[in-house]
Design a protein around this nucleic acid. Structure first.
Lengths: 166, 166
DNA sequence: CGCATATAAATTGCGTACAATATCATTGCA
DNA sequence: TGCAATGATATTGTACGCAATTTATATGCG
């Protein structure tokens, strides 16, 4: 019996993975948001950046990344495209030239009114309680996953530390 | 009062969105899988393809896409990389030259034994019941989302149909 | 002050994702 | 048979997403 079993307790069955439905749901949701957001001139990650800025204008790239769990390698080009589209401004912090401050332009602020219909259209027909339940469950997982990678990652399964850090 | 309120019933608050935790969880999970899968020479989507092929070898590109909710624009280059890595074979179906059949090479089949430890390492410390609960909830949403786009999408919020389909 | 260290973004290289289009094979039907 | 319509992949172009590296600034410490 060298070949592993394909029975229902096989840990490699696609339908047993938690990661897969999350992955599929994210892809399907992105496709669902796509046509609606394109009417606002936004992509899905750009929409998330706008949500953060509409809550609190004038943030550093790092702060945006901390909120959205994205790093500068993703955010820098994305923000440049949003700047080119006239939605945000990017300028070096005068008090700390390492930082870049991102803020809304008037056009970016005004876009908010049109964006108000987005959640409305998307929720369309879904029972609110079920969505709220899903949101809470997945949010807890996000908190857990974010805690799991303190420094970077690569320490989620290492048995012994190599260099003394005590 | 032209400016919309930012109170807790503001529908645009990031923490009220269902889409965001799904997005964040997927990104964090991909980062978590990354280092583990790279030991197997796989990326995360490639791992998913392998899961499908380990369950059922010899599938068309379309069948893989239907299972993973991905289209040929994503799968074709991905499968070519996996072919170059020696994990799968791609060959035209002799009975229907439009189709491309994807099958495992011996190396691809053998990789399964090493992959068995992946779910083990990842689940590490998580209560199984909680994961199972999350999996079921998100899976239901995937089913819903997949149903919502029958032909393509673009019909999830149209108020009146233009051409009679009755 | 002078320099090692740390921090914040930007850059590079690679691998997805997806819409739109193109290519080629198959099928249906006059 | 011939050809229009359909179907299955492939290609193109744009936009992420991330690891690793680089650049520039700030800070700490002798």
């Amino acid at each position: 019996m060298l070949v592993a079993d394909r029975s229902e307790d096989d840990p490699l069955l696609l339908d047993r993975q938690v990661c897969f439905p999350l992955y599929a749901a994210t892809n399907l949701l992105t496709r669902l948001y796509g046509p609606i957001l394109s009417g606002l001139g936004l992509t899905y990650p750009q929409y998330l950046v706008m949500l953060v800025l509409w809550e609190e204008d004038l943030q550093t790239v790092g702060a945006l990344g901390a909120r959205l769990y994205l790093d500068s390698g993703t955010l820098t080009p994305l923000l440049k495209r949003m700047e080119k589209a006239g939605l945000v401004r990017r300028e070096r912090d005068q008090n700390d030239e390492r930082r870049v401050l991102v803020s809304l332009t008037p056009a970016g602020r005004n876009l908010r009114a049109r964006a108000l219909q987005v959640p409305e259209v998307l929720a369309n027909g879904y029972p609110a309680g079920e969505l709220e339940n899903l949101r809470l469950t997945v949010s807890e997982m996000v908190t857990e996953l974010a805690r799991h990678r303190v420094g970077k990652l690569s320490d989620q399964a290492l048995p012994a530390d190599k260099a003394g850090k005590a």
